[in-house]
Simulated scan of single mutants.
Amino acid sequence: MTSLETAAIPPNIAAQLPSVNFGFDDLKERMAKFTIAFDEFIEKRREKSLEARTNYARDLADLTENQKTVRKNIQHYEQEEIKIQNNTEKEIQETADLENEISTIKAQKATRQAENETLSSQIREQSTAISKRRAKLLEEKQALASQANHNQPELAFWEDYLGLRIEGAGRLDHVRFIFTCLDETDPEREFEIVVSVESRDYEIIGARPRLDEATKTRCLETLNETRSIAKFLKSVREEFKKVAKN
């Protein structure tokens, strides 16, 4: 009922109307509380939204920074991968070179081993040959010693009566035979011949006066075939005697 309607009702009738409590004050209080609560809710939602937006912005900034870091790391790892690949290729090449060098060294070692075996075989053969040679030389020395003992009386005759003198020729294996009494015009004139006894076959090193090659060869054949010094000296003396007459 409005105030105009109440004013239109007479006082006595108005006094008789029942009193009605519509609860406006309570409603007003509740509305005020609701408004406060709603404002608080809105404020909290606003704060949460602001916080969420702040966190989102921060997270977005962090994500952007992380992306930058990831890109840098990716670039770094790509560069490292390139370096590793280059190093790997280099190591592969070095390994191949090393293997080739090892193969070369092994081949050289095998070759040297074969050469050493060949040299060892040659040394053994040479040692055997030297041993045989020594034995042969010893046998020849013994034969020469025996021949010398056999020829000693005859050589003494040659030295005393035929003017033969035997001397060294500057080397242990060279012997000089000097003849005199060959030249009737000059009995003291010397004729000499130098013989090498280094090997089994004797060799004439020189003669004074000079003898031709055919004569020396003939005298050497007599010596090497008969092994008789006396016969050799006799043949040489005859050749020098011919030279003295000429």
Results as ranks from 00 to 15, higher is better:
Arg112Val: 09
Arg112Tyr: 15
Gln113Cys: 05
Gln113Pro: 00
Gln113Leu: 14
Ala114Glu: 14
Glu115Asp: 12
Asn116Arg: 10
Thr118Leu: 13
Ser121Gln: 13
Gln122Trp: 02
Arg124Tyr: 03
Thr128Asn: 13
Lys132Tyr: 06
Arg133Tyr: 13
Arg134Leu: 15
Ala135Ile: 01
Lys136Pro: 00
Gln142Leu: 09
Ala143Pro: 00
Leu144Arg: 15
Ala145Leu: 12
Ala145Arg: 08
Gln147Leu: 10
Asn149Met: 12
Asn151Gln: 05
Asn151Val: 01
Pro153Leu: 10
Pro153Lys: 07
Ala156Ile: 07
Leu162Arg: 11
Ile166Val: 15
Ala169Asn: 09
Arg171Glu: 14
Asp173Ala: 10
Phe177Asp: 04
Phe179Leu: 10
Phe179Pro: 06
Cys181Ser: 12
Asp183Lys: 06
Thr185Tyr: 08
Asp186Phe: 03
Glu188Trp: 00
Glu188Arg: 07
Glu192Tyr: 05
Glu192Val: 00
Val195Lys: 02
Val197Pro: 00
Val197Asp: 03
Glu198Gly: 03
Arg200Met: 07
Arg200Val: 09
Ile204Thr: 11
Gly206Asn: 07
Ala207Gly: 02
Arg210Asp: 12
Thr215Asp: 04
Thr217Ile: 07
Arg218Tyr: 07
Arg218Gln: 11
Thr222Asp: 03
Thr222Ser: 14
Ala230Cys: 15
Leu233Met: 10
Leu233Cys: 06
Lys234Asp: 11
Glu239Lys: 11
Lys242Glu: 13
Asn246Gly: 11
